Amino acid sequence: MLPMKLDCDRTNTQYPCNPSKGYHGRGPIKLSWNFNYGPAGKDIGFDGLNNPEIVATDPLISFQTALWYWMNFVHSVIGQGFGATIRAISGPRECDGQSPATVTARVQYYTQYCNQLGVELGDNLRS
Score class of each variant (00 low, 15 high):
Thr85Pro: 08
Asp47His: 10
Ile44Gly: 08
Asn72Leu: 01
Lys30His: 12
Phe46Gly: 14
Ala84Asn: 15
Pro28Thr: 06
Tyr37Gly: 01
Tyr109Leu: 13
Asn12Glu: 03
Trp33Cys: 06
Ala56Asn: 11
Ile78Gly: 01
Pro39Phe: 02
His75Asp: 02
Asp96Met: 08
Gly41Asn: 12
Ala88Asn: 05
Thr11Lys: 07
Gly79Gln: 13
Leu117Phe: 09
Asp123Gln: 15
His75Phe: 04
Met1Cys: 09
Pro28Lys: 12
Met1Asp: 14
Gly91Leu: 02
Ile86Asn: 07
Thr11Trp: 06
Thr57Ile: 00
Asp96Asn: 15
Thr65Gln: 01
Thr104Gln: 15
Ser20Tyr: 12
Glu53Gln: 06
Leu60Ile: 11
Ile44Thr: 05
Met1Asn: 12
Phe73Thr: 00
Thr111Gly: 01
Gly122Asp: 11
Asn50Val: 13
Cys17Val: 01
Tyr110Gly: 06
Gly122Lys: 09
Thr104Cys: 09
Ser32Gln: 08
Cys17Asn: 02
Thr104Lys: 14
Leu2Asn: 11
Pro16Leu: 04
Tyr15Lys: 03
Met1Trp: 11
Asp96Ser: 08
His24Val: 04
Thr102Leu: 13
Glu53Lys: 05
Ile54Cys: 12
Ser99Asp: 15
Val77Trp: 04
Arg26Asp: 04
Leu67Met: 02
Ala56Glu: 01
Val107Trp: 08
Val107Thr: 14
Asn124Thr: 08
Tyr109Ile: 11
Thr65Pro: 11
Ile29Val: 02
Ile44Leu: 05
Ile29Glu: 02
Pro100Trp: 12
Gly25Val: 11
Leu60Gly: 02
Thr65Leu: 03
Val77Asn: 10
Ala40Val: 11
Gln108Ala: 14
Pro19His: 10
Gln116Ile: 10
Asp58Pro: 09
Asn72Phe: 05
Ala66Gly: 14
Phe35Gln: 06
Trp70Phe: 12
Gly83His: 07
His75Thr: 00
Thr57Pro: 01
Pro52Asp: 05
Lys42Cys: 01
Tyr37Arg: 05
Phe46His: 04
Leu6Ser: 02
Asp9Ile: 07
